[in-house]
Design a binder for these strands. Structure first.
Lengths: 124, 124
DNA sequence: ATTAGTGTACTATTAAGCTGGTACACTTAA
DNA sequence: TTAAGTGTACCAGCTTAATAGTACACTAAT
């Protein structure tokens, strides 16, 4: 999380996304404690209020649980995490498909394009 | 172009994208005249300056040509349009792949997901 | 020369996001 | 009880992007 933010997207959203990615990838597990708002803010180089906003929104979404005086933790609700993963995947895939269709591409063209990219990568 | 804009993205960018999509899809052809800034603004329901901004940026990118007193036209440079199409495709595909990888998916999983979506659609 | 239609330039105004600062509430451990 | 660490709540201010309004400049046709 080296504070290199996209200037055109709210920082708090970028941090939220990053945390969610860590969760669905398994970097964070259910019940893990997140850094305190103040520590996290220093690490990332933003104001504590921005992290507060991140935790607040994540809690509203049921992704984390904040306990006054103790800290903020990844939810113990594993099902919620599974749902999160499905939601995130669906959003990405749907976006890809609609964007490509708006340009006039077919499903077949979409697939072959990704195959080509896979070949060009080391980690195929 | 029924003015239903995403609140979280600049309107002028959304209009730019829409025009670019129309170009690469063939809805607009090279040399075609675009609506005047004022007409377009009324059609879409935004201020003329917003359209002005759209045309200005598209001109900077070599996609259109504005002629004072005459109007704004799709470039005659067909090669530029081909390049545009490749750029747009590459951006969409790259974004899809990096987003999916950040979540921990493999190329194989990406492809099967799209296949599934294709099956669920009428226009498979 | 006039008019209508076009792009262009300039200057507010508005809204969102981030920051900084302060104060408060709760929990745990010493 | 005290202190340190935590989340929470406000609020004022700054900055930037986006939008809007108005006036100007050019072209073509009459």
């Amino acid at each position: 999380m080296n504070h290199e933010f996209n200037r055109h997207k709210p920082i708090y959203k970028q941090i939220m996304e990053h945390i969610c990615q860590d969760i669905v990838r398994g970097t964070y597990e259910h019940g893990d404690k997140l850094p305190s708002v103040r520590d996290f803010a220093v690490q990332v180089g933003v104001n504590a209020n921005t992290i507060q906003r991140v935790y607040q929104e994540l809690e509203r979404d049921g992704i984390v649980e904040s306990k006054r005086g103790q800290g903020t933790f990844i939810t113990e609700n594993e099902e919620r995490i599974n749902v999160l993963k499905e939601e995130m995947k669906k959003e990405i895939v749907q976006r890809f498909i609609t964007d490509m269709m708006k340009m006039g591409f077919t499903y077949h063209e979409m697939m072959t394009t990704i195959e080509e990219e896979a070949k060009n990568d080391d980690s195929s």
